[in-house]
Amino acid sequence: MSLLTVKENIGMVNNSNTDMASLVQANKNIVFDTKDLNLWYGETHALKDINLKINEKEVTAIIGPSGCGKSTYLKTLNRMVELVPTVRTTGEITYKGQSILDKSFKVENLRTRVGMVFQKPNPFPKSIYDNIAYGPRIHGIRNKKILDEIVEKSLRGAYIWDEVKDRLKENAYGLSGGQQQRLCIARTLAIEPDVILMDEPTSALDPKSTLKIEDLVQELKKDYSIIIVTHNMQQAARISDRTAFFLNGEVVEFDVTDTIFTKPTDNRTEDYISGRFG
């Protein structure tokens, strides 16, 4: 509960100049609205005139061949892309009506609302408990009882509680790859985000672990908006509501997943999903 208060306060600070209520009302179901986004790494033009509206509480898949900009776009949504020093962007992305690329929007706030799960499971070399408690702790929660509750709730949320409840004090690197990735998802849930970005979360996992993560994504979309980058087209078809097809830094097609996979309007989409390239 106190975590929620913290986040509301963060929100208040940021909305001082914007009439939040009206903006949220106007974009009721849109969580991210991207307008004419362009991004360069140094001289390389990596994203070109991206326009995408991403709905709340849906799974949006981003597919495309290597180097098409899909991961870059995902990392722009929580501004992780800024860790590359030479990055430059133009255009606008709004998150629930607030312009997030604006330097006045603190990235720490953004990343508290927009969590991220990475390609390779990346738990900290700490205990399972400390991994989950990491986020709440950096946001100022010290109370042991509240931390305990958050840890249990997050691990249950990621369907890994039963597997780890007796070994919370053990190092997270004792878990299998698939368990580590679910732990990382639980760690993201612990900051109580609205959106979860997933950057090829199953590419380092075996088929069985992959299936577990896919089931988990289906459960999570009841409460969270999920944007998932994947190389695996079957995966996109299985778990997403909408799919965006990226090619050479552009959005070629963005539609309901069924439409993309059954009757795409663009030839390049059809070529890609039928395996003619990529």
């Binding site: 992780m80 860790l83 720490e108 990343r111 508290t112 969590g115 990346n122």
Partner: peptide, 13 residues
């Protein structure tokens, strides 16, 4: 780098 990314990704300074 993936360790610091995980931390930044949760809103850590």
């Amino acid at each position: 780098g993936f360790l610091s990314e995980a931390s930044y990704g949760m809103g850590a300074t």
